[in-house]
Simulated scan of single mutants.
Amino acid sequence: MTGASALEAFEGQRERLFGIAYRMLGSATDADDVLQDAWLRWQGVELARVADPSAFLARTVTNLCLTALTSARARREVYVGPWLPEPVLTGSGPGADLGPLEDAVQRESVSFALLALLERLSPTERAAYVLREAFAYSPREVAELIGTSEANARQLHSRARRHVAGTPSQEVDPAHWQEVVVRFLGAARDGDLARLETLLAADVVARADGGGIVNAARRPVQGRENVARYVAGLVARFSEGLLPAFVEVNGAPAVAFTGGGDLRGVLVPRTDGERLTALDLVVNPEKLAYAEGQLSRIGGLSGLRG
Rank of each mutant, 00 (worst) to 15 (best):
N284H: 15
V164I: 12
P174C: 00
F257N: 04
Q178D: 09
D209F: 05
V227C: 01
A254S: 02
G300N: 13
P168K: 13
R159D: 08
A216W: 02
E292N: 10
V283W: 12
G166L: 09
L263K: 05
R183E: 10
L288K: 12
A208W: 11
Q178L: 11
I298Y: 09
G166H: 12
V214R: 15
G166Y: 10
A188P: 04
G191K: 13
L185R: 11
P269D: 05
A187D: 06
A252I: 06
R207S: 06
S169V: 00
V247L: 05
R183F: 04
A289Q: 14
S158L: 09
A256Y: 03
A201N: 07
G211F: 15
I213P: 06
Y290Q: 06
P244V: 09
G299F: 14
L263D: 11
G251L: 01
G191L: 05
Y290M: 08
L196K: 03
V282P: 07
A232L: 06
R183V: 02
T277N: 14
R270Y: 15
V181D: 10
L199H: 07
G191T: 01
T198I: 01
P253F: 00
H176A: 14
Y230G: 03
A206D: 03
V282C: 07
A256E: 03
V172P: 12
R207T: 05
R159H: 11
F184L: 14
H157G: 03
V204I: 12
R218I: 13
R219I: 09
E225A: 15
A217W: 02
Y290R: 10
A217G: 08
V266N: 05
P244F: 13
L185T: 06
Q170N: 08
V227F: 00
A278G: 13
E225L: 09
E225I: 04
F246H: 03
L243S: 09
A228D: 01
G260N: 15
R237F: 00
A291P: 06
V249L: 01
H163V: 13
L288I: 09
V249H: 01
Q178H: 12
V205T: 13
L295K: 00
